[in-house]
């Protein structure tokens, strides 16, 4: 009976994952390997293709009133701009997508049984500290050693192009590629990922939590479910559960470095304005 409950939990979280995250690992891998009936992604490999590729970027539309304000505040510009301006504009688009992704992760977190019964302050803390870790994990299936899918899989941006940007833009993605290439070797599928994301969100050691016990209890149940899931789904992969959990240590360092890069950008790039939701998250984070 206990393992039936754990399987039901795995099924529930997988269904939530499919509901809230539009680009699954299965779909991303199909796009990356060319095994999809959809057209191939547009490839961005230099500044020219970045400008051309902007029409493919299917970001959430900015309301006209705010677009005017952002044009003056953030230096939103038109085709034919300098490389610096294109880089800044691309960064702003990444921020919009990241903010939308935070909303998706929040909806997923709310679907974890017991999460909404936690103290509201603790729900905020768990999301504040967990959401960038979740986003980095969710980026991994979109990446291979040569580049990454962006814009819901419509665009493939090469790793070499990202490395060619000026500092610190060029430094921001390389650690995620290094992590993702190793993480992808574990060959977790979407149903495994759903449980792992819930484990990350339910971390009882986040700073400032008021009531740790119920969070740890919830996490323990999801951990049992993940352990069972990995044993059943990957019977030949020895110690996979332990290997997956070890990745959580790498994630904390990645987030800390990422926040450092954003703070550096804020200081050095006068044209950068940070999305208010992302500001909330990284303020006093690490």
């Amino acid at each position: 009976p206990e393992s039936a409950d754990l399987r039901a939990l795995a099924k529930h979280l997988y269904e939530s994952y499919l509901k809230y995250f539009p680009l699954t690992k299965a779909k991303a891998r199909a796009i990356l390997s060319g095994k999809t009936s959809d057209s191939s992604p547009f490839v961005i490999h230099d500044m020219r293709s970045l400008s051309e590729g902007e029409q493919f970027i299917n970001c959430r539309q900015i309301p006209p009133s705010l677009a005017n304000q952002q044009q003056s505040d953030c230096g939103l510009l038109h085709p034919g701009d300098s490389a610096e301006e294109v880089e800044v504009r691309f960064f702003q688009r990444c921020q919009s997508r990241s903010a939308e992704a935070v909303r998706e992760v929040t909806e997923f977190a709310k679907s974890i049984p017991g999460f909404m019964e936690l103290d509201l302050n603790d729900q905020v803390t768990l999301l504040k500290y967990g959401v960038i870790e979740v986003l980095i994990i969710m980026m991994a299936p979109l990446m291979n050693k040569d580049g990454t899918l962006i814009a819901y899989g419509q665009i493939f941006m090469t790793r070499e192009f990202l490395k060619s940007l000026r500092k610190p833009f060029c430094q921001m993605m390389e650690p995620k590629f290094e992590f993702s290439v190793k993480f992808n070797m574990l060959e977790m599928d979407d149903s495994d990922m759903a449980l792992f994301l819930a484990v990350i969100i339910l971390s009882g050691d986040r700073p400032g939590l008021l009531n740790v016990k119920p969070i740890e209890d919830l996490q323990e149940t999801v951990l049992h479910s993940l352990e069972l899931q990995l044993k059943m789904n990957h019977p030949d992969s020895l110690q996979l559960f332990a290997k997956v959990l070890q990745k959580m240590t790498d994630l904390r360092q990645l987030v800390s470095d990422h926040v450092h890069f954003i703070q550096l950008l804020k200081k050095t790039e006068v044209d950068i304005c940070l999305h208010p939701l992302l500001q909330e998250i990284i303020r006093d984070l690490y």
């Binding site: 903010a99 935070v102 909303r103 509201l120 729900q123 905020v124 208010p276 939701l277 909330e280």
Partner: peptide
């Protein structure tokens, strides 16, 4: 904490909150 994280707080309370504020 809720005061310093108004958008996150709103997202937790209401799934239709737009993030492009």
């Amino acid at each position: 904490l809720k005061e310093k994280h108004k958008i996150l707080h709103r997202l937790l309370q209401n799934s239709t909150t737009p993030v492009d504020l």
